[in-house]
Amino acid sequence: GGVSYHDFSGHKGTINTGDVQWLTAGRGVVHAEVPAGQGVQRGINVWINLSAEDKMVEPMYQDLASHDIPTAGEGGVSVKVIAGECLDARSPIRPRTPALCLDVALRPGARLRQHVPRGWSACAYVIDGEAVFGGATASASAGARTLVVFGGDGDCVDVRAEEGHAVAGARVMLVAARPHGETVVRDGPFVMNSREELEQAREDFRHRRNGFEMADGWTSDHAATAVVR
Results as ranks from 00 to 15, higher is better:
residue 2 G to F: 06
residue 3 V to D: 00
residue 3 V to H: 04
residue 4 S to V: 06
residue 4 S to T: 10
residue 5 Y to G: 12
residue 5 Y to T: 02
residue 9 S to H: 09
residue 12 K to C: 14
residue 15 I to V: 14
residue 15 I to N: 10
residue 17 T to P: 00
residue 20 V to G: 10
residue 21 Q to P: 00
residue 21 Q to I: 15
residue 22 W to F: 14
residue 24 T to H: 13
residue 26 G to S: 13
residue 26 G to T: 05
residue 29 V to P: 04
residue 29 V to I: 15
residue 29 V to G: 05
residue 32 A to W: 05
residue 34 V to E: 14
residue 35 P to V: 05
residue 35 P to L: 03
residue 37 G to F: 09
residue 38 Q to A: 14
residue 39 G to T: 06
residue 42 R to W: 15
residue 43 G to I: 05
residue 45 N to S: 13
residue 48 I to T: 00
residue 48 I to K: 03
residue 49 N to Y: 04
residue 50 L to C: 07
residue 54 D to L: 07
residue 54 D to I: 06
residue 56 M to K: 08
residue 58 E to Q: 10
residue 59 P to G: 01
residue 59 P to Q: 08
residue 69 I to Q: 11
residue 71 T to A: 11
residue 72 A to F: 07
residue 73 G to P: 04
residue 77 V to T: 07
residue 77 V to L: 06
residue 81 V to L: 03
residue 81 V to W: 03
residue 84 G to R: 00
residue 85 E to D: 13
residue 85 E to I: 11
residue 90 R to Q: 12
residue 91 S to E: 06
residue 92 P to S: 14
residue 93 I to W: 09
residue 93 I to H: 05
residue 93 I to T: 12
residue 96 R to D: 00
residue 97 T to V: 12
residue 98 P to D: 12
residue 99 A to L: 03
residue 101 C to F: 15
residue 101 C to I: 08
residue 103 D to T: 04
residue 104 V to Y: 00
residue 106 L to A: 11
residue 108 P to T: 02
residue 109 G to F: 05
residue 110 A to D: 09
residue 111 R to Q: 10
residue 111 R to W: 09
residue 114 Q to E: 00
residue 115 H to R: 12
residue 116 V to W: 02
residue 121 S to R: 10
residue 121 S to H: 08
residue 122 A to G: 05
residue 122 A to W: 07
residue 123 C to D: 02
residue 128 D to V: 06
residue 129 G to E: 06
residue 129 G to K: 04
residue 130 E to G: 02
residue 132 V to N: 00
residue 133 F to M: 01
residue 137 T to Q: 11
residue 141 S to Q: 10
residue 144 A to D: 03
residue 145 R to E: 13
residue 146 T to K: 08
residue 147 L to W: 11
residue 148 V to G: 04
residue 149 V to W: 01
residue 150 F to E: 03
residue 151 G to C: 04
residue 151 G to E: 09
residue 151 G to T: 05
residue 152 G to T: 12
residue 153 D to L: 11
residue 155 D to G: 10
residue 156 C to M: 13
residue 158 D to N: 11
residue 162 E to W: 09
residue 162 E to D: 05
residue 167 V to W: 12
residue 168 A to R: 07
residue 173 M to Y: 01
residue 173 M to H: 02
residue 173 M to S: 00
residue 174 L to V: 00
residue 176 A to D: 06
residue 176 A to C: 09
residue 177 A to D: 01
residue 179 P to I: 04
residue 182 E to P: 01
residue 183 T to I: 10
residue 190 F to C: 12
residue 190 F to S: 08
residue 190 F to K: 08
residue 190 F to R: 04
residue 192 M to R: 12
residue 192 M to F: 15
residue 194 S to T: 12
residue 195 R to A: 15
residue 195 R to N: 11
residue 196 E to D: 14
residue 197 E to K: 03
residue 199 E to P: 03
residue 199 E to Q: 13
residue 200 Q to H: 12
residue 201 A to C: 09
residue 203 E to W: 14
residue 204 D to I: 05
residue 204 D to L: 04
residue 204 D to V: 01
residue 204 D to K: 04
residue 207 H to G: 03
residue 213 E to A: 13
residue 220 S to P: 03
residue 220 S to W: 04
residue 223 A to N: 09
residue 223 A to K: 07
residue 227 V to G: 08
